[in-house]
Write a protein that binds this DNA or RNA. Structure first.
Length: 565
RNA sequence: GCGGCUGUAGCUCAGUGGAUAGAGCAUCUGUCUUCGGAACAGAGGGUCGGGGGUUCGAAUCCCUCCAGCCGUACCA
């Protein structure tokens, strides 16, 4: 049975059959026809789908492309899902039949939120690792962008059939952890009246003093050592744990929930991933000792330079951890698809990690590292650098508090990850059409409200006949709903989540247009709820289906779909 | 220096091989005595950073130049 998810390949098949028929009839030379020529026309007046096959065939068939198009179109078999094709230039244009469009309302209601789910990822396991900020401080606004992108991507992959795991990589080992410990210990000692300056390369933020205070409340002077002694390791670890807890709370508030929090330190424990990976690299001759350090000779694998994996003081670098971590993802856990969402300041690391992943037996092509650019906060046209309250960098907590999680997530997703974005704090809280978040959520609330109003009058969608949905605005709204599976597919294949909010806006507009068209025409028989109960029930079915579709795309974005506002 | 990302309407940005390059906001003009006006319809507005190339067809691919941002650690 053809539905919105399969109609494009279905039309492709119709075209391919038509070419074969034309060849058999001697009207076309026997040429190799490329498949997958069906696309969405930019301008909907050209129909719902169009094939560019004739243009691609033009030269091989030795005839003008428009003639080829006409020949092919003539041989397209009649089909219940599409009207007979038309020719425009060399495009072969298809319009979905009213009946097929109407049937999608029934399918949507029958399948509910799953109506847009697809199967491209069926049977495959995917991991999305995102945020993974060092637990040396609170999350900032940029981490929020990574959180919104990673979480939405994970949801889209789930909708595309993948078994998805969301993961946070906790950097609880290494130099920055040590620096964090030293800073924390300095703040801690200060609480006991000692002259202990924060290290020059430490973390100057006031939150560190707060953290020290918290620990003092809990543990008193238990971590205090003699003057001049270094930070006790247990204090650093406790500090990290508390920071991780704080980060987790922030992400909870943002609506992001992980399947696993993966400790970097665990790579060095037990059947150590680190040892395994170093053994593998040594075995393959990719390790070299120079200047007292151990280097991964990545330049042999096409990298610009070699990189240190074990420092001259014997401690592994973060790069070594990352190699072991990706070995764990690909080899130990066997993911088919791995997505790392990183801030753009890590881009120098991308190629190295892919190369190393390949060197230890992982599939570098199945590793997709998604970089997102920085976020500039603004109020109107004024750039906001620091928090008024703390005088320090603005945290994700503050952003959520100020604009709400829905607006924050929607705006973060709206821009493609690769472009630097301005986040206008004033705009995000505006309750007007300037603000796309409210525009979309309002559409959902309005849909809910229509169903409520109908129910008060004893009308429900039950028993409505979708064949009665013949008005242009009705069919246009259904057509918009039918695009959701395509949007899911695009996001799952390209890892570009910005299509989700753009689609949500388009669907909301289609609904508002549908809803207003009835008002504008000054004809009460055109409203959803009319004197004609049969017609009302049919339209309520459409309202119900549109509500399901809008709620679904919002759900994938991690944005609430309110019943009233 | 080398490398990456970005450059599209006044602003913020979609569009990465197809038809006359789109959306939102802003501006202007209208609609409806509102099943929720947080609405709708329409108009104006473009050397797609510049130049060259590939292609039946280029904002999209290649080369080159320019501008902005980021990277180029025995930091992460």
């Amino acid at each position: 049975m053809v539905d919105a998810r399969s109609v494009r390949p279905h039309i492709d098949a119709l075209i391919e059959d038509a070419v074969r028929a034309a060849v058999a009839a001697g009207e076309l030379p026997d040429v190799a026809a490329p498949g997958a020529t069906v696309e969405r026309p930019k301008d909907s007046t050209n129909g719902d789908f169009a094939s560019t096959l004739a243009m691609r065939l033009g030269r091989a068939a030795m005839r003008p492309a428009p003639e080829i198009a006409a020949v092919i179109a003539r041989h397209v078999a009649s089909d219940p899902a599409v009207d007979p094709p038309t020719i425009s230039g060399a495009f072969i244009n298809f319009r979905l039949s009213d009946r097929f469009v109407q049937s999608e309302v029934e399918r949507c209601i029958a399948e509910g939120a799953a109506f847009a789910d697809i199967t491209v990822g069926a049977g495959k396991r995917a991991q999305v690792e995102f945020v993974s900020a060092n637990p040396t401080g609170p999350l900032h606004v940029g981490n929020g962008r990574g959180a919104a992108i990673g979480d939405a991507l994970a949801s889209a992959l789930q909708a595309a059939g993948y078994a998805v795991e969301r993961e946070y990589y906790v950097n609880d080992a290494g130099t920055q952890t040590d620096t964090f410990g030293e800073t924390l210990y300095a703040r801690y000692q200060q609480l006991f009246g000692r002259e202990a300056p924060v290290p020059a390369d430490g973390y100057p933020g006031q939150y560190m003093a707060g953290l020290a205070e918290e620990i003092k409340q809990e543990a008193g002077d238990r971590f205090l050592r003699d003057e001049g002694e270094p930070c006790p390791p247990a204090l650093a670890q406790l500090g990290i744990e508390l920071m991780v807890r704080h980060i987790r709370r922030t992400l909870d508030a943002f609506g992001v929930h992980y399947d696993r929090w993966f400790s970097e330190r665990s790579l060095y424990e037990g059947e150590s991933g680190f040892d395994t990976v170093m053994g593998l690299l040594r075995e393959k001759g990719y390790l070299a000792e120079r200047e007292g350090a151990t280097w991964f000779t990545s330049s042999d694998l096409g990298e610009g330079k070699d990189n240190v994996v074990i420092r001259s003081d014997g401690r592994p670098t973060y790069y070594a951890s990352d190699i072991a971590y990706h070995y764990d993802k690909f080899i130990r856990r066997g993911f088919d698809l791995v997505i790392d969402v990183w801030g753009a300041d890590h881009h120098g690391h991308v190629s190295r990690v892919k190369t190393a992943t390949g060197a230890v037996g992982g599939d570098g092509d199945a590793l997709h590292i998604l970089l997102y650019q920085l976020v500039t906060l603004k109020r109107g046209s004024e750039v906001v650098k620091l928090s008024k309250r703390s005088g320090e960098i603005i945290t994700l907590d503050e952003l959520i508090e100020e604009v709400g999680r829905d607006a924050a997530r929607f705006f973060f997703l709206l821009r493609s990850p690769g472009s630097q974005m301005d986040f206008d704090l004033d705009l995000a809280v505006k309750q007007s059409s300037e603000n796309p978040v409210f525009y979309v959520q309002y559409a959902h609330a309005r849909l809910a409200s229509i169903l409520d109003r109908a129910k008060e009058q004893g009308l429900t969608p039950d028993g409505g006949d979708v064949a009665l949905l013949t008005q242009p605005h009705e069919l246009a709204l259904i057509r918009e709903m039918m695009r959701l599976p395509e949007i899911i597919e695009t996001v799952a294949n390209t890892f570009e989540p910005q299509h989700l909010p753009h689609y949500a806006m388009a669907l909301a507009t289609a609904f508002h247009t549908f809803n207003d068209a009835f008002k504008q025409q000054d004809d009460s028989s055109l409203k959803v709820i009319t004197d004609n109960a049969e017609l009302s029930r049919a339209r309520l079915r459409l309202v119900l289906a549109a509500k399901i579709a809008l709620a679904r795309v919002l759900d994938v974005m991690g944005v609430d779909a309110p019943e009233r506002m």
